[in-house]
């Protein structure tokens, strides 16, 4: 069974004062079909994990490994990782002026699957997926993320996840900034992907709210660059009650 395996991962970020370590030994294994939630306070390194796995140039892996189905992700370029089956739904999707959503989706799908999608079926597929996410068809002609509301950006990220059919998806605070309706629509999209494919999901969130719609199999509490505690979905319930204070109290080095 395909797995995304992270072993003793250390990552630092370049700052003016030199490299600053953020991840301090992350161990995590996600199998196909599983949903893992990573929760933690601001500044604990959750988003760094997401970006580092996708290969953002800002982050340097100083030690450890990350493999997708046994293949070394860390030696791959960003686009190679995506073609290997990794998808990152970004917290802050970037605007690409003058490039229509339709053109972007087709270009990316072609790059990922190695051949252009069949014109007729692809058109239907895009249209259907947009309908499911309650996106106006006119959306396809707009420039990528340009002038999109926060909710539209996140729907567009999930739209891509549904269309590109990755083997593993990292959702980096996809829930933040969404109202209840948008949260429900986006969560339905994630659940559809889970039903239709054997996707493994790493759901990064600050809040427990999204976990009412997307049931995690495992919950990991992230503090100060590594996993402090692990459990099932009951751990999320406890965090809902108690917050992160307990972890922060034990660990004064957490920065905002």
């Amino acid at each position: 069974m395909p797995t995304l395996e992270i072993r003793d991962l250390h990552v630092s970020v370049e700052t003016k004062e030199g490299p600053k370590p953020i991840l301090r030994g992350v161990d995590l294994t996600i199998a196909s079909g599983e949903t893992h939630a990573i929760m933690g306070p601001n500044g604990s390194g959750k988003s760094t994990l997401a970006s580092a796995l996708a290969g953002h140039p800002k982050y340097t892996v100083t030690s450890g490994t990350a493999t997708l189905d046994g293949e070394d992700l860390l030696t791959m370029t960003v686009d190679q990782r995506a073609r290997a089956g990794l998808f990152l739904a970004m917290q802050y999707p970037v605007e690409v002026s003058g490039v229509s959503v339709a053109n972007f989706l087709r270009t990316a799908k072609t790059a990922i699957s190695g051949e252009a999608p069949k014109l007729r079926t692809w058109g239907k597929e895009v249209k259907g997926a947009m309908e499911n996410l309650r996106m106006d068809p006119a959306f396809a002609e707009r420039s990528v993320n340009e002038g999109f509301s926060g909710g539209e950006k996140k729907r567009h990220e999930i739209l891509q996840m549904e269309l590109f059919k990755p083997r593993f998806a990292i959702l980096d605070e996809t829930d933040s900034g969404l109202d209840v309706d948008a949260l429900r629509v986006v969560s339905e999209g994630v659940n559809r992907a889970k039903e239709e494919t054997d996707i493994g999901i790493l759901l990064i969130t600050h809040y427990t709210r999204i976990l009412r719609y997307i049931k995690p199999d495992f919950v990991h509490v992230f503090v100060d660059g590594k996993i402090a505690e692990e459990g099932g979905s009951e751990l999320a319930d406890r965090l809902e009650e108690e917050g992160y204070d307990k972890y922060l109290g034990a660990n004064k080095t957490v920065s905002a």
């Binding site: 996708a54 290969g55 953002h56 140039p57 370029t77 960003v78 686009d79 990782r81 995506a82 073609r83 998808f87 990152l88 970004m90 999707p93 970037v94 690409v96 972007f104 270009t107 990316a108 790059a111 990922i112 891509q160 590109f164």
Partner: peptide, 10 residues
């Protein structure tokens, strides 16, 4: 990064 993360080469 955004475009490459969608599988598109540089």
């Amino acid at each position: 990064f955004y475009l490459q993360a969608r599988g598109i080469p540089e």
